[in-house]
Write a protein that binds this DNA or RNA. Sequence first.
DNA 1: ATTTATTATGCAATTAATTGCATATGGTCT
DNA 2: AGACCATATGCAATTAATTGCATAATAAAT
Lengths: 177, 177
Amino acid sequence: MSLKHAIMVLLETEAGSGYDLLKRFKQRLGFFWQASHQQIYQQLKVMYQEELIDCTLETQQGKPDRKIYTMTKAGHKDLLAWLNKACKPQKINDSLLVKLYGGHLLDNTVLLNEMRQHREQHNKALAIMLDIEQQYQTLDNRERKGLVLPFLTLRRGILGEQAWLAWADEVEVFLSK
Amino acid sequence: MSLKHAIMVLLETEAGSGYDLLKRFKQRLGFFWQASHQQIYQQLKVMYQEELIDCTLETQQGKPDRKIYTMTKAGHKDLLAWLNKACKPQKINDSLLVKLYGGHLLDNTVLLNEMRQHREQHNKALAIMLDIEQQYQTLDNRERKGLVLPFLTLRRGILGEQAWLAWADEVEVFLSK
DNA sequence: ATTTATTATGCAATTAATTGCATATGGTCT
DNA sequence: AGACCATATGCAATTAATTGCATAATAAAT
């Protein structure tokens, strides 16, 4: 399980609450790691019990209290151990492809329709990522250097989405015949 | 949950045992859907209870008995309903990217090493898929027509792997600096 | 005034997936 | 003779993820 370690990667650079982490997942890891708020809160609770992270309560005026989590030494050690251990190949479970595989039971227009819906989402995701990439390109050399690794993960997203869209073109040609 | 529906897509065209389905997953859906034997056996049990599938025992000489599952009308109906319903965007949880994102805590050589291990796996997967594609291309028109949809899922795999490898090239350039 | 969005957290129940173990036969390899 | 692989199925326990519900404050919009 590496939700735990994804959380620690985020906490390592900056302490934060469950809600913070939820937002950071969306902004920073969202293209390749999705986690719901329940998952995060539950996991933080477990990690606190395992003493991988510490917790301090922060009272705020106006807004509800926040539980700020920080890494412990044990947490840092655990994270490093995970980073140094090879991770297994990504597990893919893509129901759109299952559907396409079984698509002979359907009218082509239904498949085409679904493809177009997915295409829209992939188009949007790509647009957002290309935008972030542009912003990155306007930074000066020093700033870019500090962001190389996040940039590389962004590139994965971009190349992945472009490949998806190229594939969708092929599919739509076949289905339109 | 669509493991259930993936199973039904396979059962729809041909009846089979749990073990059969396990192998079919590997051969036919393996590049975009992975299921363990425990998952499949458990799911078949549930589906049988829900009367989505029927079961008959087949005694074999030499080998252990097989439970042959076939679709019921209710199962067929359920499958069609699923096929007609839009599926949500694929959930991605890619721990390699999490690791890369947090890679500043590691030596570059460790990251490079891991990239190379993954590259090998992706290379292998691509080679297998290109091979299947070649076999497909040697078929005559009529045979190809019947396999267009599986072929399109194969294309997804090919384009996806090629994109992955192109990305890996970029990453390795950056990490080698 | 009321709805809606954002911030902030959580429990409880269910569903799904993983891990580890277990059994049994036959064939191949060394 | 012993090891290992393929066929064939399963239980039990644990871990992880999802779904649904719940609370509570502020701010902004209509």
